[in-house]
């Protein structure tokens, strides 16, 4: 297929449709509104549902209902809206429902700003909502990877019956790059015999629920769910490593920031500094093993984020003291520039 130029937000929407999503529930918020606008244009033409909900809270609960009814459902928002959706995400995790939630992150806290940020890492990978649960978080770094990640997100959600977050930022959402879409004609979506589609008086009622009043029962259920999480940690870690074989310093960055870091690494290499990159693509499950192994071989690790330092905590846990882990971050919607990252690299080698 021919490559077309597409905004990140529009690429997510098109990829979701091609992945079989026919139910999208949204609420406008900058900088992700193009997703809703695209869905509003396309869904009526393909027999799908686009619904602008009365709030982010309502939208995520519509996703809960639709996912419980067995369809591929999605919602998207940006940081303040994800805070509102967090209640629903917890219920979705507690009821073992598959769905995709898009967060095109902007600066916070509060209303914050509308420029790109990565300050929702904690919210995404450490909970956000209440309770013992995990959510797979996929953080692409280019528009083509956004497309691939959207397919992946729906597949993982169905495979493990759990919410998956696709995390971008204002820059990825707004920028255009060439993309190609895989051919999905004839791809069959998985059967969901647990969904509430009506008993047709042929089976016992299906119940979608997260309430378990007996502590023993709830503990057993959560422990069972944890086995799934461990399986995911073993099988679904995704990352990109570049120049790590001979590196004296490893940079760790994800999403749009990783692109900036790549430019800085290029300059470092040109100037004789052996710098490498580990780019987590899944933020949970986190690529701890590769970082742990790298930490034993390098002089230092430098974590770069558009935040005051969130992922760096997981990098430090992974490095476990094997080497110093430094941090460089810009926040509030300020995007780091390659020259500044290069200067940081020089400080540590």
């Amino acid at each position: 297929m021919d490559k077309v130029l597409m905004k990140g937000n529009e690429a997510i929407a098109e990829a979701a449709i091609r992945a079989g999503c026919r139910h999208f529930f949204g609420y406008p918020i900058t900088p992700q509104t193009e997703i809703s606008a695209y869905m509003a244009r396309r869904m009526p033409k393909i027999g799908g549902t686009f619904l602008q909900a009365e709030s982010e809270v309502a939208a995520i609960n519509m996703v809960y209902g639709a996912a419980g009814a067995g369809v591929r459902a999605m919602t998207s928002s940006s940081s303040p809206g994800i805070s509102l959706k967090s209640e629903g995400i917890s219920y979705i995790a507690g009821a073992d429902l598959p769905c995709v939630i898009v967060n095109i992150v902007r600066a916070g806290p509060g209303l914050g700003g509308i420029q790109p940020a990565q300050s929702d890492y904690f919210q995404a990978v450490k909970g956000g909502g209440h309770g013992d649960y995990r959510m797979i978080v996929v953080a692409p770094s280019s528009i083509q990877e956004i497309v691939d990640s959207t397919f992946l997100a729906f597949d993982l959600a169905d495979k493990y019956r759990m919410p998956v977050m696709l995390m971008g930022d204002g820059m990825l959402g707004q920028m255009m790059e060439p993309v190609a879409f895989p051919d999905t004609t004839g791809v069959k979506l998985p059967e969901k015999e647990w969904a509430t589609t009506g008993t047709k008086k042929m089976r016992k009622p299906n119940i979608i629920n997260s309430l378990y009043i007996q502590p023993d029962e709830l503990e057993a259920l959560i422990k069972n769910r944890w086995k799934k999480y461990i399986e995911i940690e073993q099988n679904e870690v995704r990352f990109e490593a570049e120049g790590t074989e001979d590196a004296e310093i490893i940079l760790v960055a994800y999403g749009a920031t990783a692109r900036i870091v790549k430019a800085a690494i290029k300059k470092a290499r040109e100037n004789g500094i052996k710098a490498g990159l580990i780019r987590p693509i899944t933020l949970w499950p986190f690529p701890s093993d590769v970082i742990s192994a790298a930490a034993k071989k390098v002089k230092a690790i430098l974590c770069v984020e558009m935040s005051m330092g969130q992922m760096v905590e997981d990098v430090r846990l992974s490095a476990a003291g094997a080497c110093p882990v430094h941090f460089y971050g810009r926040t509030g919607g300020v995007v780091p520039i390659p020259a500044d990252v290069y200067d940081e690299i020089r400080r540590y080698v």
């Binding site: 920028m175 790059e177 060439p178």
Partner: peptide, 22 residues
């Protein structure tokens, strides 16, 4: 800007297009 980016793409170059927004 979009025409420029497409011109690059049609010429088999790598391209990106980033608008100011808000």
């Amino acid at each position: 800007g979009k025409v420029a980016a497409y011109a690059g793409l049609m010429g088999d170059m790598e391209v990106s297009w980033l608008p100011s927004y808000g």
